[in-house]
């Protein structure tokens, strides 16, 4: 016999706040990349305004989690959800900061002669898709989607290394590009960090759903249990 719990409404509120914060972060990255590609500094105020809202949610979600822990002493799946929410909250706040970094660097770049963007748009596309999918995986408790996010991080790292190498060669061959190339390196570095945070979120989703901690490669992503608890209940005596 199930009973409806006041606590469930609070947990729904927590999930909703995380997804709202994630949505804001996605929009910030889109705008920041658009600012870089179109050399349009007028987009910056909209990004910093959203960062304020993200920071507000960062504090609000932390407080909500602490209240849930203190007042309800959650256990099992509920406990893992609150623990995951605390960590996802930190990752999203950092993603917001990195989107602002991309935008501000883009503003500097807009005052300089244009240069080839190389793989940066592709890195941005990949990072945004990873963030979106990690949040979808959080909302739907989708382990397979979370695993696919983690697998994509290698591609983002490869693109970053390739971008670094190309820009290093460019600076060596043409000293006049140094300032612009350094800015592009900063942008690609921030995009790669956003993908890392999305990967963290995906790992937290796996912990939340399966109770399996796979961080730092302790469990290879391909070995993450494909049996969910619902599929494999342990029978009684």
């Amino acid at each position: 016999m199930s009973v409806e719990r006041h606590f469930d409404r609070d947990l729904d509120g927590l999930r909703e706040a995380i997804l709202r914060m994630g949505g804001l972060c996605e929009g910030m990255i889109h705008s920041a990349v658009k600012l870089v590609i179109e050399s349009d500094p007028s987009l910056l105020p909209g990004i910093t305004e959203r960062e304020d809202r993200v920071n507000g949610l960062h504090l609000e979600i932390d407080e909500l989690c602490l209240n849930l822990l203190a007042l309800h002493s959650p256990a099992a799946g509920d406990l893992r959800l609150v623990a995951a929410a605390l960590k996802v909250n930190s990752d999203l706040e950092r993603i917001g900061d990195q989107a602002v970094n991309v935008a501000e660097t883009g503003c500097f770049l807009s005052n300089l002669p244009q240069m080839k963007l190389g793989d940066v748009p592709r890195m941005a596309e990949l990072a945004v898709a990873m963030l979106k999918d990690s949040l979808d995986a959080f909302a739907k408790k989708d382990v397979e989607l979370a695993k696919s996010v983690i697998r994509r991080d290698d591609e983002e790292d490869r693109l970053k290394s390739q971008t670094f190498n190309e820009l290093r060669s460019l600076m060596q061959s043409d000293a006049s590009t140094i300032q612009r190339a350094l800015d592009m390196i900063l942008i690609s570095r921030n995009l790669e960090r956003i993908a890392d945070h999305a990967t963290n979120i995906a790992e937290d989703v796996i912990f939340m759903v399966l109770g399996q901690d796979i961080r730092h490669g302790v469990v290879p992503v391909d070995d993450v249990g494909d049996e969910t608890r619902a599929a494999a209940p342990k029978s009684g005596s």
Binding site: A230, A232, P233
Partner: peptide, 13 residues
């Protein structure tokens, strides 16, 4: 933190 049986999960939560 991670019970194996759904009924345990429902009870402890």
């Amino acid at each position: 933190t991670n019970p194996s049986d759904k009924r345990t999960e429902d009870y402890v939560t």
